[in-house]
Amino acid sequence: MKRLAILLLALALPGLAAATDYTVQPGTSTLGFSSTFQGETFQGHFGQWNAAISYDPANLAASKFDVTVQLASVETGDSDRDSALPGEAFFDVAKYPQAHFVTTGFRKNGNQVIADGTLTLRGVSKPVSLQVGFAPQGSGATLDVSGAVQRLDFGVGSGEYADTSVIGAEVKITAHLQLAAK
């Protein structure tokens, strides 16, 4: 019984050594993406999203990202596209107003930290891996995250919009977060 207690304690300890919890500074943080339309790259971003960030580069096991995006807040600099994206064929915000990304673990690839997680978008959950760049800054930090998803994995741009010779298959995701320690 005593051994079991020690074992449980030993297993729990890394979790107890908590990573720092950060709040995201909304004004200077961006969550964006880019893809192509008719051979031209376009940039988009989301105006409304929340991220719960716990991160410690020395304790990746205790680190966690949990991001929720209000898909209706998408803007891409083109009124036709901005009115189409929330619609049923793309994000279908009437049925799936939010996208959600939560990490399942962190690993190192050389010096590069990779956040493995699950992205839930348009009712589909798929594993997504993001590159993490973390730079402490005073009591806070900057966090730069990038990765790529295949839009059709999530049914974004379904039906006749599935033609990837017109609308690119790959969507690059980039986020720049200004973090303040809680």
Partner: peptide
């Protein structure tokens, strides 16, 4: 209008 201009999907 800010739209792309592509020639038969070959080049912009």
């Amino acid at each position: 209008t800010g739209k792309p201009l592509q020639w038969f999907k070959q080049f912009n």
